[in-house]
Design a protein around this nucleic acid. Structure first.
Lengths: 220, 220
DNA sequence: CGATAAATACATACTAGCGGTATGTATGGG
DNA sequence: CCCATACATACCGCTAGTATGTATTTATCG
């Protein structure tokens, strides 16, 4: 066929198919042809017309999926009438996290770290950049400034908590553990964070429990 | 040429070349031909005679490089006249860690998580299996049994400490941070571990400092 | 001990599939 | 009517892997 009236629909179709395949089969395990085969009738030429490389498709697919999640977290930074400590607790409260989890469900990666290694690497990198530097550290520093948080090593605490939250509490790259173990992890992280001056709040337990329920229902 | 009298030398050459290339260029960035080109005169047929796939080469190369490190850690488990708490401290003491660091220097991965994603995934997986289940958890449980450690969540504490030690204190997949930041990380981890009943000992700071010196001298 | 057979250590030649490109073609909007 | 755009088609170099051929070592047996 010739040109389409609404090319952005084509782009959306490509990204949808790509996201699903990359999650299920990993980056290297997914070929451009695999993606093309899901776009009934379309060919590789169409894909390479809209994207210049496989890598660009990968990044675009996950950027699109992550955008609402990141935006939601950032939105908490601007609020005026909260102390840093309050914002910190809220970052890990069910009301903030759970609605986003449903979005994650769309892109559940294969529970095999090697297969999902590229995604794991992105999460790892993101734990330093986006999570720690992006919104966690600013919140902590705000708390230090307004006196609501006493933390001697804000940067390090932010990095450690981000890493554990992203790669340990969210079991994206490993099989889902029994609920009580996930709760034990949450409890453990809370204690460890408290030791460096970060009170994540008791709601972390409820958050974890609700995440577990969602994922368990989704058949993880 | 025909067959070699000492094929194990050929295998060793292959694994040496493979290790270096996989570290420098990552798994996907290294082709079998790249490896073959470093084995002067040898051809792909030789490689595929000794190994049945690229993946097997990768695993064999890193298994071989990791073996002395893992063995060294395991050797601490059998000692009789030490409490669990003493063994735990010793696991992270300079005398235990630093000699092994030189071995790591041989396989310094590219400081880009995505390029090194497969190795990162292995370290991630290893943090749960080998590190936590393998020697850390047994030591903690020994300490609980002999009364030298009071830890309510041994499994979770072991996992968290392993993850942070392997992916945060050992900056294998990210650029080397300034020394004071690495020391701050060590201090932070020590405090966090203490909060869940694990006394890693003050020597962790010295260990970190010495690791930093070694890597800095190596031009990381 | 020495000939022969078998197993091994490679080299050579090839394949299917990959990411990516060059080019052709049809359709929409100005 | 025309041209930019949205595709399709045909192709390329490279990759991991295989099939097969060949030379040398080692085991076997008279």
């Amino acid at each position: 066929m010739g040109r389409n009236k609404y090319p952005e629909e084509t782009v959306a179709k490509i990204l949808d198919a790509a996201l699903e395949l990359f999650c299920a089969q990993g980056y290297e395990g997914t070929s451009i042809q695999d993606i093309v085969d899901r776009l009934d009738g379309m060919t590789k030429g169409a894909v390479y017309h809209h994207f210049k490389s496989k890598e660009e498709i990968f990044n675009a697919a996950f950027d699109r999926a992550m955008t609402p999640i990141v935006e939601h977290r950032r939105s908490m930074l601007g609020v005026g009438n909260m102390t840093g400590a309050q914002k910190l607790k809220r970052l890990y409260a069910p009301e903030s996290v759970v609605p986003q989890i449903e979005l994650w469900a769309r892109m559940r990666p294969a529970a095999d770290p090697v297969k999902s290694s590229r995604l794991l690497a992105m999460q790892y990198q993101g734990s330093f950049n986006e999570s720690a530097d992006g919104y966690l550290l600013p919140v902590i520093e705000e708390g230090i400034a307004d006196g609501s948080i006493a933390c001697e090593c804000p940067r390090e605490a932010a990095e450690a908590v981000s890493l554990l939250a992203n790669l340990w509490l969210l079991p994206l790259f490993r099989p889902l553990e029994p609920k009580e173990r996930m709760l034990a992890r949450a409890q453990c992280l809370t204690q460890m964070a408290a030791a460096v001056g970060l009170d994540l709040g008791n709601e972390v337990l409820q958050t974890t429990a609700q995440i577990w329920d969602v994922w368990d229902r989704a058949g993880w």
